[in-house]
């Protein structure tokens, strides 16, 4: 009879792989960031502080936008059903599997200086220059992030709504409650865990978003991931890149731990 291998031994190979390809590199980043003077220099620089502020407010604003938009859209799909609603849910799943930068690319055609919106403006008013020139500002990034990340809020919401008892809604409306009241007093409390889970996931993803900002190509919009890329690849200043990276990781891992806690409580 062969002696059985202890259970924890089976966990070793994958952990070893993870350690070599991820944990050790991450440790090196932390080590590199500890180069003398690196933190002081980076933290004192205006570009870092601006990037930190931009990243934070963009992430928070995008999250709020995604929550509001996602809630309204999911509400209609789930509770005011229409033919093709299933197809819309499928479309959302597909949408999630596309890379984020496609949205920025599309926005260039929609709201770019010679894009669709400005084109229509010119056709209507005769004014050769349209009024839409927000794409290269943080507002363009905000629009792209809300567009791209809203489905991440809708998915857990739709799952939560599908588990809700319609009997509850029917009882509420038979008691004479109006739709807005039902949404506020019955649906919203039930949806809160899903909203919290989806919202914190989106917050983390927005903090880490790179493709959308890169494709915007705006010099005025620098986020922490952009700063990491700029310092490392464009300026070859690895120590500074590592410092920014550590700050970014601390922010998003902290929030991610929060997200896991929230979603575990929500049963997601």
């Amino acid at each position: 009879m062969p002696t059985t291998v202890p259970v924890w031994l089976w966990a070793l190979p994958p952990v070893a792989v993870l350690a070599v390809v991820f944990l050790y590199p991450l440790a090196l980043v932390v080590q590199e960031s500890l180069a003398p003077g690196a933190y002081a220099e980076v933290l004192a620089s205006v570009s870092f502080r601006e990037a930190l502020v931009t990243t934070m407010w963009l992430a928070v604003a995008s999250t709020v936008g995604c929550l509001v938009l996602g809630f309204v859209l999911a509400l209609v799909i789930a509770f005011v059903p229409f033919p093709g609603g299933k197809a819309v849910s499928k479309f959302i799943d597909v949408f999630l599997s596309f890379p984020s930068f496609l949205i920025t690319l599309a926005l260039l055609f929609l709201y770019g200086t010679v894009g669709m919106a400005n084109g229509i403006w010119t056709d209507v008013t005769g004014d050769p220059a349209g009024p839409f020139r927000f794409l290269s500002t943080p507002w363009g990034v905000l629009l792209a992030e809300i567009t791209y990340f809203t489905p991440f809020v809708m998915r857990p919401l739709l799952a939560a709504f599908s588990q809700m008892e319609t009997a509850q809604l029917e009882v509420a409306s038979s008691l004479g409650a109006r739709p807005l009241r039902i949404v506020r007093q019955v649906i919203l409390p039930e949806a809160l865990p899903a909203l919290a889970a989806g919202g914190s996931l989106v917050l983390v993803m927005c903090l880490n978003e790179f493709g959308i900002v890169l494709f915007t190509g705006a010099k005025g919009v620098t986020t922490l991931p952009m700063l990491v890329y700029g310092k490392a690849i464009l300026e070859s200043d690895y120590a500074a890149a590592c410092v920014v990276a550590v700050v970014n990781v601390a922010l998003s891992v902290g929030l991610y731990v929060l997200y896991r806690g929230v979603s575990r409580r929500a049963g997601a």
Partner: peptide, 13 residues
């Protein structure tokens, strides 16, 4: 949770 850019940087380093 770790930003992809940072994963890239870490692997590069």
């Amino acid at each position: 949770a770790v930003p992809s850019v940072v994963v890239g940087l870490a692997v590069l380093v």
